[in-house]
């Protein structure tokens, strides 16, 4: 079976959940080989983790010589691994669909003369037999359309959105191979001179949460009612761009076209009008609820349940109601 390269998503060697999702997808397509570019002293831990999700192999690339350079060295590393595998040696290359991941994929596509699909929400093996490129599903035009796409040239390079598969545990051999890529000077031209890690919120990851409670301009800058409801439900907090632009919430909370895409069991939009760019990030949610004082707000067109009212009174009352039922 052909190898499938999976670029490990991690922070300083701490593996993030999308890695397991990608490994699960990779097992559908061939033999998953994880590629870890990070601190070498974490490699053992990473090996243990990826083995549990079916990685047959783990390429360990010590980041020390390339640390602090943006994107390009990672693309060169994957290129060299792909070239080593030879023609037809790889069934696909799977990369997390973050800003960085997509840029790595873009460069890699040019280098390998291979087709690229970004932001896949599903990847399945081709039903028409061995050797055919996988079929990917994307959500396009603000989630109003679904497209299925296939790479027709080279090694399929696919960036996959978080939460596109349920991680399945599987015993992998996890054979470790150290790999030392040759990095060009050109790839070291853009330097990361400072890093400020995102503060832990103590709440679930936005793209991962079963429930998301979002606030918009209608909060007037007071996210208190949003946060207390979120905590009562064990939910993540999201925000519209208007709330982010106003400086009320950091950009990492933004849901929408230029923020995160979420697809939780329950999405509650409060004080959010429902602009197309906001919908782009949330309209594939299972159940949508809105609280808005304007009965004409477009958000009400897509809700399963809507309350016309002031979020500052409705949300705290809902929180009280929920807490009471939890105890009862």
């Amino acid at each position: 079976m052909a190898e499938v390269l999976v670029l490990v998503d991690h922070v300083n060697g701490v593996v993030r959940k999308p890695t397991y999702e990608l490994l699960t997808i990779a097992s559908r397509l061939g033999e998953p080989s994880a590629v870890y570019i990070g601190p070498a002293d974490q490699a053992d831990d990473v090996t243990e983790k990826v083995k549990k999700y079916g990685a047959t192999k783990l390429y360990v690339v010590d980041e020390e010589p390339i640390k602090g350079y943006l994107v390009a060295p990672k693309a060169e590393t994957l290129q060299q691994l792909a070239e080593r595998a030879g023609d037809g040696g790889l069934a696909a290359i799977l990369i997390p669909s973050s800003g960085e991941g997509k840029e790595i994929a873009g460069r890699l596509a040019i280098k390998l003369k291979s087709g690229l699909v970004t932001d896949a929400v599903d990847v399945q093996a081709a039903s028409d037999g061995h050797g055919a490129a996988p079929v990917t599903t994307q959500s396009v035009f603000a989630g109003n359309y679904t497209a299925t796409t296939r790479v027709t040239k080279g090694t399929p390079i696919i960036t996959v959105k978080p939460n596109s598969a349920t991680p399945e545990e599987a015993d992998g051999a996890g054979a470790v191979e150290k790999f030392i890529p040759v990095i060009s000077d050109a790839a070291k031209a853009a330097q990361i001179v400072a890093v400020e890690p995102r503060q832990a919120t103590g709440r679930p990851e936005l793209t991962d949460a079963a429930i998301v409670i979002s606030g918009g301009r209608g909060t007037g800058g007071d996210f208190g009612p949003i946060e207390t409801l979120a905590d009562a439900l064990g939910a993540a907090v999201g925000a519209s761009r208007a709330a982010v632009d106003s400086g009320w919430m950091p950009h990492s909370y933004q849901v929408g076209q230029t923020g995160k895409t979420v697809s939780p069991q329950l999405y509650v939009a409060s004080g959010i009008s429902g602009a197309i760019q906001h919908r782009a990030g949330m309209q594939t949610s299972k159940t949508i609820v809105a609280v808005n004082k304007d009965p004409e707000a477009p958000i009400f067109e897509l809700v399963d349940f809507g309350v016309v009212g002031d979020l500052h009174t409705v949300l705290p009352a809902v929180t009280t109601e929920i807490n009471a039922r939890k105890e009862g």
Binding site: A109, V117, S139, V140, G143, N144, T146, A147, V151, T152
Partner: peptide, 11 residues
């Protein structure tokens, strides 16, 4: 094109 969109469906 190195990729081919095979199908588009309105949600």
């Amino acid at each position: 094109a190195w990729t081919q969109v095979e199908e588009t469906t309105a949600r």
